[in-house]
Amino acid sequence: MERRTIFGGWALPAAFVLPQLLLTIFFFIWPAGQAIYGSLTRQDAFGLKTQFIGLENFEDLLTDPLYVESMGRTVAFCVAVTLISMGVALLLAVFADREIKGRGIYRTLLIWPYAVAPAVAAILWILLLHPQIGMISHGLKALGIAWDYKINGTQAMIVVVLASAWKQVSYNFIFFLAGLQSIPRSVIEAARMDGARGWRRFRTILFPLLAPTTFFLLVVNLVYSAFDTFGTIQAMTQGGPGKSTETLVVKVYRDGVVNLDLGGSSAQSVVLMLGIVMLTVMQFRFLGKRDKT
């Protein structure tokens, strides 16, 4: 879409895009370039000589069992967080869309967690699940479960998944509810006339009509769980015990900042960039398709 009427001159618009452009160049394009350059080179131990080595860093990375493991772990983590948060949000949205008393209050009470920082969500869950002070932990111990996510890797994974999913429910809820409300009442009425109720109505009418929202949220949630959960994981487990909650972003941080392996972490950054470019392209192709229809 282009405008017919425009203003003349180019000095003013140039001045207007300049701030955005400078920030983009200095903080996005240059670092991205550096990362790509760094990923293709190797520095000697003293940082004196830099040598071009092609894709060797990537070969090292993809043959490194620790990295491959972390990739698999990240995928499992993202899928679990996405499914739980979207599932719970959809369930709540379907009921909040019904015409009941106090709808507005329910809605407000379900929306505010959007504002809670991922790292603060971790604090809430520590209070529930911490091996010594956690409220739920006592119950679990009373049931005879040896609950301590500080030493048990599987339990640690469960804990970070729960805290991460909890934080994201309200975002998904907002979108699912908006999606449901945009479905014409006549469609729902028609379904009711045909005798479709409850679960069947949801499965055959509502869910298919929600497909665009669902797809959009799927991408957003995968990006969220891959990247924004760093704060949650760092606050709860720091990637541990061992490496059992070390997702790719935690690993970049550990390798690059804590262990100062810059070449390897550049290659890791490039892999993450490729991942997010893929997700964004998927999303835009899909949105583009929807706009045309």
């Binding site: 903080f27 394009i29 990362a35 990006v223 900042v257 964004t280």
Partner: peptide, 20 residues
């Protein structure tokens, strides 16, 4: 160029941005 930045959240470019 602006559009491109959509694809680079801080978490992805931490180390290189830090260097800059």
């Amino acid at each position: 160029m602006i559009f491109f930045t959509l694809m680079l959240p801080v978490e992805v470019r931490i180390i290189p941005t830090y260097a800059v």
